[in-house]
Design a binder for these strands. Sequence first.
DNA 1: ACTCAAGTTAGACAAAATCTATATTTAGAT
DNA 2: ATCTAAATATAGATTTTGTCTAACTTGAGT
Lengths: 142, 142
Amino acid sequence: MELDQAFRSAALRPTAQRYAVLEFLAGHPVHATAEEIFRAVNRDDPRASRATVYNNLRSLAKAGLVREVMSEGKAARFDANLRRHHHFICERCGAVEDISWFDLPPSAGRVALGGRDVSNYEIVFRGACEGCRDAQPEQGAK
Amino acid sequence: MELDQAFRSAALRPTAQRYAVLEFLAGHPVHATAEEIFRAVNRDDPRASRATVYNNLRSLAKAGLVREVMSEGKAARFDANLRRHHHFICERCGAVEDISWFDLPPSAGRVALGGRDVSNYEIVFRGACEGCRDAQPEQGAK
DNA sequence: ACTCAAGTTAGACAAAATCTATATTTAGAT
DNA sequence: ATCTAAATATAGATTTTGTCTAACTTGAGT
């Protein structure tokens, strides 16, 4: 499976717990919180303590197999989508969706960025997702 | 002062505590955490409890005068939202800097965004800020 | 089999945010 | 000016999120 591949190329030991964390994230592209991952991993067998989940999220992140995505709520969220992508946040239902990658025109922001050395960027869009857009346009009063 | 203006147009009561929170954020564009705001506000007079600071950050955010900016650490960070802007995060020193606003070309991402209704967006750049770029290129071992 | 380092663990701890119940302030009516 | 209802503020308890510690387990290399 390609997860083994990922571990090998990252020179990271694929322990049962670590594997389970990565497997969950790879199979659930929903930007799970550490707590959700903890519960999911413990539903199946290789039990992992909270500390282990946090430890592994950190080692996976350091190896580049997972990344912590910025989020508005208090709990950190993680993502195993290794392809570059942008994000869309629905302001009505709170869903966070991946947007497939497109480049900014090379000139964009050249002036605004001044002497900074940009190695990466990401666009975060906000608005109404398809589901919410089709629902009640505003719900009047409340 | 323009803050009164802001309160009036948001139909939000400018209580001493609320005013102090907004004033601090407007005067310190550094993406403060709630804790920093709490301490700053209590250095001067109108003392505010922690709960009040959180309450006011939320009411100000709902009124659009302030916004919670996404951040990597665990503590939420806030920004007085008087001008639209992008962000730059230095991957070496962790600084978060504001980048003056520029629009995305209207066609950008049209396909990738599908049927979503975008009402706003923000670009987050990463890399080395001017200070870090000029410092040691990598620092060898560590 | 023995050793050492990496990994895991439970639970204590700390930090960040929210909640609760009460007190205070304010805007508007009288 | 006084009263009342709604909005706001408060201290402290509580919950949620994340980190730390110290003991235990595992496995690769010898």
